[in-house]
Amino acid sequence: MDVQGSAKRLIQTPGYHVRPKYDLEGFRRKTQESSERDFDVALPLTSMIDMFSMLVIFLLLNFSSTGEAYFVNKDIKLPEAAHARPIESLPLISITPKGIYLDSNNKEIKPVAVNLEDYVMTPIVNELLRIKEIQDNLEAAGLKPKKEINLQADRTTEVKYIKRVMNILISNGFTGINFAVREIPPEKE
């Protein structure tokens, strides 16, 4: 305690003035401590790793090195087969209740649609001739293009529409026709 002044006047430097009766010792200690604190935040990663493991296993089961050959039309529920072979990416004819569609991954072939009751299918015939022309050009260049067509239809479609389309394909030189089917799951066999 610093004492200044004469002996007659004692000046004491004011110190901690809260009397012991009112002193909150713990609170005082906390406020006097450094304001920089270490926060230790540890995220619980166990459940995240568990989720990732499940996701990886599920996606590994659906992995395919060849990729998706084409997308099934949403109006079509394909029939199932157990002895089919992998499908290739080829021009596709879809027979749905709304009509008959021709589509191809080749950008030179434009997608066309005809009415289901159309016997002549002129737009489709025109695109088939275009496909044939492209195949002939590729053959002339020394390549060996696939001369097949994929065909998909709903399982309840009557065969007469299938036959109609097949006749159009055969008359335009496409004798190799692949019927798209869904693979039978192993437990159903």
Binding site: S64, T66, G67, E68, A81, A84, G176, A180, V181, E183
Partner: peptide, 22 residues
């Protein structure tokens, strides 16, 4: 791994029955 597998996943297992009409 998840991103790569999501991009290469095949959701529809489509096969083909081939016929040669010749």
């Amino acid at each position: 791994l998840v991103v790569m597998l999501l991009l290469t996943a095949v959701w529809n297992h489509i096969l083909a029955l081939s016929t040669n009409t010749s």
